[in-house]
């Protein structure tokens, strides 16, 4: 223990060598689309899951020591980490799937530099509400078509049409199990965020019927 740091921190603390910066990218998509797999592939650590415990507001709040009773629900979130350089760490968070927890997404996407929306071409309809959600935020996002076993049967233009996406919305193919592929997808997100930076207005959302 550095004893010089015991006193009231009035002037800078001696062993505060610069402020670390956490950045994050959110990985979203419909249920079972491969979010957990993607986060695990891109992450330098084994995929980790953290939990948020929620309770019905009407039950009231319990104290820390209180036991988790029947009125509570546990929501799991996958996350991963990529240490980019000293003091710069990228975190990946998979959005919790069930729709009733979407209010938690607001917390999660706040401050994200971008998002990946994974799409399974066999279940496009599952992606609609997710895309709707992100279009209503200002978070730059890319559509990543998760081709299982390198299988990408549909051309991007068809998917774009089916998903009612603007022509400028980036779309990439990826294999959620593959580290390089997942990393390339993240690169696409950051590139888009940089490009988006120059065309400040969010991409308008055409009508979409789920």
């Amino acid at each position: 223990m550095n004893s010089a740091s015991e006193f009231e921190p009035m002037r800078g603390r001696p062993h505060d060598d610069g402020e670390p910066t956490p950045v994050k990218i959110v990985v979203s998509g419909g249920f079972g689309v491969g979010k957990t797999t993607f986060v695990g592939a891109a992450s330098e650590i084994a995929p980790v899951r953290t939990e948020e415990v929620l309770t019905d507001r009407s039950v009231g709040v319990d104290d820390l020591s209180g036991t988790v009773d029947k009125a509570t629900t546990t929501v799991a979130m996958d996350f991963g980490r990529i240490s980019l350089r000293e003091q710069l760490v990228l975190y990946l968070f998979g959005t919790p799937g069930q729709q009733r927890f979407w209010f938690m997404w607001d917390d999660l996407v706040r401050g994200a530099i971008g998002a990946v929306i994974l799409v399974d071409t066999r279940r496009l309809i599952d992606s609609f509400p997710v895309i709707d959600y992100f279009e209503r935020t200002n978070i730059p996002f890319v559509i990543a078509v998760n081709g299982f076993d390198g299988d990408f049967p549909y051309a991007h233009e068809h998917l774009r049409e089916a998903l009612a996406l603007d022509a400028r919305r980036p779309m990439v193919d990826c294999d959620a199990r593959d580290t390089t592929s997942a990393t390339r997808t993240l690169i696409a997100v950051v590139e888009h965020a940089l490009a988006n930076r120059h065309t400040a207005a969010p991409v308008p959302a055409p009508g979409r019927n789920g």
Binding site: L54, T55, S58, V61, Q99, W102, F103, D106, F128, P129
Partner: peptide
């Protein structure tokens, strides 16, 4: 779904 719930209308806390 798809409606950002910035006012946290959810009954869950």
């Amino acid at each position: 779904p798809g409606e950002p719930s910035s006012n946290r209308a959810s009954p869950l806390v």
